[in-house]
């Protein structure tokens, strides 16, 4: 990424110590396409422990898009332990309010259930599909950018400042999405609209952040929270997501996901 738009470069200029959890390229790593959401959450949790041991400070988690969901889920599982706060950027939170593609939440859930159980299964999503899907979110805009690029090809200086970003969005920045992870994400995002109603399900148990110890004070200039909270584009603090009970399981590792609408305890009664 160009230094002008690089997040780590920008944060470093602002006096921050930036770390990145790199999941690599699943399609080119042994067992990569069999990874589930729990593998990603375990990796983030291990990273938190490492950063804390290395720096002596509780790190902030900054997740963008689905990364913000990971941050929330890890904070829930850890009961906020070792985490100074959370910032999410463009993460989906309230599906009822968002109405993606204009689809009401009540219709979205069965549609996602069908897609998850009958179509996705454990199939992985190749990187080109993610890239293409992103372009299809705004097909006219994507086509216009491609035409502009061709028309300006004679002017290298005019293209240079956007070239890294263009290459990233046009394919180089996308990696395959492992099937189990994709399924877990669809479950977590849609079941009970959890990010708004509070808590998160891990291995059939409901976790929330109520009762978590207050976070330490750091002068970062980003929102400092008594507990990890969700801050992002038009999102604000979601107090409702922080209410309820915090229950930790006897087991050690994160277990997330399952089939939507499948077996297991119905946790709708939890807050």
């Amino acid at each position: 990424m160009s230094p002008a738009v690089s997040a780590v470069a920008g944060l470093h200029r602002c006096g921050v110590d930036p770390w990145v959890v790199d999941s690599g390229e699943p399609a080119h790593e042994e067992g990569g396409l069999q990874r589930g959401l729990q593998d990603h959450l375990d990796a983030i949790s291990e990273s938190i422990d490492h950063v804390r041991a290395d720096t002596g400070r509780r790190p902030y988690l900054v997740g963008y898009s689905q990364g913000g969901m990971f941050a929330y889920e890890v904070a829930v599982f850890r009961g906020n332990e070792g985490i100074a706060g959370i910032v999410t950027l463009g993460s989906p939170v309230d599906l009822k309010a968002m109405k993606p593609a204009g689809i009401p939440f009540e219709a979205l859930v069965p549609a996602v259930e069908f897609l998850s159980n009958q179509v996705v299964g454990t199939r992985s999503l190749p990187s080109w599909a993610s890239s293409t899907g992103f372009e299809l979110l705004d097909p006219a805009g994507s086509l216009r950018k491609r035409v502009d690029f061709v028309l300006k090809l004679h002017d290298r200086d005019a293209l240079a400042s956007h070239e890294k970003r263009r290459r990233f969005l046009n394919g180089e920045g996308w990696v395959a999405w492992p099937g189990p992870s994709l399924l877990d994400m669809m479950v977590g995002l849609t079941r009970h609209n959890r990010f708004m109603t509070g808590g998160y399900e891990i291995d059939g148990h409901l976790y929330t952040l109520r009762g978590s110890e207050p976070a330490g004070a750091h002068g970062l200039g980003i929102r400092r929270c008594d507990r990890p909270s969700v801050v992002g584009e038009g999102v604000g603090t979601r107090g409702a997501a922080l209410r309820g009970r915090r229950v930790r399981p006897a087991g050690g590792s994160l277990r997330v996901g399952g089939r939507i609408g499948g077996g297991g305890r119905d946790l709708a009664g939890g807050r």
């Binding site: 470093h12 110590d17 997740g63 941050a71 920045g173 990696v175 492992p178 994709l182 750091h218």
Partner: peptide
């Protein structure tokens, strides 16, 4: 786990960036 600008002065606030699953870590670096 990548630490950027590892030679920086100590004492900075640590931030862990978490990209979405389908984007490579190059999205933030």
């Amino acid at each position: 786990l990548r630490r950027y600008f590892p030679d920086s002065d100590p004492g900075r606030v640590a931030v862990i960036l978490i990209p979405p699953m389908m984007l490579s870590r190059r999205s933030s670096t």
